[in-house]
Design a protein around this nucleic acid. Sequence first.
RNA 1: GCGGAUGUGGUGAAAUUGGUAGACACGCAAGAUUUAGGUUCUUGUGACGAAAGUUGUGGGGGUUCGAGUCCCUUCAUCCGCACCA
Length: 834
Amino acid sequence: MSSSIYHFRSVEKKWSEIFSRYSISNSEILRNRQKKYYVLEMLPYPSGKLHMGHIRNYTIGDVLARYKKMSGYAVIHPIGWDSFGLPAENAARQSGGHPKTWTEANIASMRELLQVFGYMYDWPREISTCSENYYAMEQKIFLDLFDRGMVYRKKSYVNWDPIDQTVLANEQVIDGLGWRSGAPVEKRILDQWFVRITAYAEKLLSGLKELEGKWPDKVLKMQENWIGRSEGVIVNFKIVGSNRTIPIFTTRPDTLFGSSFIALSPDHEIATELAKNDLDAARFIENCKKGAITEEAFAKAEKDGWKTHLYAECFLVEGKKLPIYIANFVLMDYGTGAVFGCPAHDERDFDFAKKYNLPIIRVIHSEEELPYSGEGRLINSSFLNGLSTGDAKIEMIKYIEEIGAGEGKVTYRLRDWLVSRQRYWGCPIPIIHCPSCGIVSAKIPVLLPEDIIIDGIGNSLEKHPTWRFVKCPKCGEEAVRDTDTLDTFFESSWYFLRYLCPDYSDPIDRDIADAAMPIDICIGGVEHAVLHLLYARFFVMALKDMGYISSGISFMKLLAQGMVCHKSYKNSDGEWVYPDEVRRDNNEKFIDRSGKEVIEYSAEKMSKSKKNIVNPQVIVDSHGVDATRLFIVSDTPPEKDFDWNIDALDGSWRFLNKVWKTFNLVFSELGVQIGGSNSLLKTTHIYLKKISEAYDSVALNKAIAFVREFFNEIEAGVKTETNESLRFAFKNFIKALSPIAPYICHEMWKIIGETTEPLQDTEWPKIDERLAIENTVTIAIQVNGKLRKTFEVERDTSEPILEAMAVTLLEDSIQKSLIKKIVIIKNRVVNIVI
RNA sequence: GCGGAUGUGGUGAAAUUGGUAGACACGCAAGAUUUAGGUUCUUGUGACGAAAGUUGUGGGGGUUCGAGUCCCUUCAUCCGCACCA
């Protein structure tokens, strides 16, 4: 019997090389455009190590890729590296090496482990975004956007780290401090590059409707909120005693009769002008900028204002004047940077009015206390009185437009995308600044210089002795290069198109892109729900409008996979302890290696800092790839968080051993030769149907449950079935399991001499629908809806017969005369109502 | 504050979309084989009960012959956004 132990090590070594040869040619994709399947896993950052989250992500993708391949699809399943970015610079600074060297070494070791896992990737399509081949093409796209006015330069407020001397992304500012330097971050006005994503706000919003049912509702809602469309009106308020007006955006024109003040953002141009001649104003504005920096603290900060000497004319009421304040709660980058205050119907305005003793005029009738921001009938509002808030809005906008005080307008929360970074390790912005010609497109490619000093302070490109100095391509005069590089989200916004033509001389090969797109399923973490997936959708739309591709549709299904979690442990010294260092002592207490007592914390996302991580390599060494793959997609649906559980991993390992043992029995030279039954034929079709449906709906946990049930049936059949029937069932079982556990399945397939080709090229079994239905059904007999008995009957037995059988079976307990009604559902239930 | 989910055994979860709740696993319990590579096999396992049975899908209410599933209400947990005018 010892010979039937499954030796995964030798088997996995043998097949891994064969699996990594998978590839699909462009001509094959073009030929099969009607039956293609593009499965995309979000490309990883080459940090050096694959973690369990990666493994879960890629295993889900690989199972689908293999299943679709077996089902006859032309499967596009690429992988690549999101290889620009800050960590490489930091690593280089610490080690004294070069970001490129570090990145390439990481890629090599990660690639190796991906191949160990048997992922059926199309390696010839592999891309690395830091390669010249990639970013030079990106520069071409950038310049195309630039030529169309889709990229522009603008002065704007940014997070500035005074120690690192660089701009920080919002995510890099933690509680107001630079994430690396710990220095208080300043708001600075800098000239930056922006992508005009707002031009696509409406398209991005309407595109979400097409994705309903295909993307998780949560993600759709998040993007909708991010884009934040609101309909309203811009009203121009005249400043008393001046020709100037202050434009104000509002979505509540219905409450204009309740207005009692106007508030400007501290960054508003009028505020800035006032501050020039007024020290008090200047001081107030300065204080506003210092205050809270986190969004939450900012939102909760007390309303604060500074009263200017200016008043605005209320265009609705003759002689009514509204005092103008500068107020800390008014945002410059939404609407027009100025608001009118209606204290009765807005919480912020209410707080502000209380503080500064401003009139509070109720204009919407309601039983509720002020401030009231709900719907109702208008009061105290002249020609609006009696109207609903909805109608009042329409009437007021009409009036404003008639008297020429403003016009209806749609505003978005979405801002243009700031893409410039003062960083070395990124795609150089291919622009030259010429003293006489201004901003000029550079000749591409603009390559990153390799001889560079990275000391963590400022932008190394700017400090390079020669790189930035060039001749202007237009006039030939001395000029300088732009030393900023692009946000790395720029690279990850179009990589899925480059996979399709990794060596093409233009960024995108239109023919192949048209055949392969859209992406049929994209798998990745929810953390990319807004930024990456919004940018990528935008890119595809913009690329379509620039003629690179024919369709603006990027993604079909989005699978937001859950996190991989693990319990965490902390010892009595307050140090985190690795899970595999924790034991139970005689008193059932948790202890670490040194015997210190350990507290167990509930499962949360695996993270290095809490040491609740599991290294994939270690698991592969102890349990094998197939068991790990099987385990990581078992039990928990892909979109839910997955709790690591070592016992269940052992269970997956045991299952594969059982499979191996039964395989050796069923296909042994002599066969089993005990029974004479052929019922497995039908069973096989029944289960293949269930399994296929589960794979099709990406319910991999269910697919595995059915695969295991199928196997249990085969095992039970060993004593009763003919050899022929058993072998038929087992072969189909191998096919059904192979997308999840490809190694053991290929090995078994090879042993029975079916083919020497990888199993992925074997067609998924054809299901005979007539056989895939059970012949007998179990009928439940209920009394008043409660289960009393069950009985077996042939499928589709007529209702009168079911009724008669049920009544007879319950004869002893129920008198016929008491029966009021009988409800019969064919093949399911007979409910007797008494 | 606003928005979005999710609540089913000791655990991960199923439930043909209104028709036998708990499939498939993990764990646990009892037993068998004396078990060399990390065993394997059998049986049991929502709760209460010796049993017949009763009860059970966060709580409360409703619709229905019948509700985990539909409606109302309430509680709890998680996540996202956050002065958006």
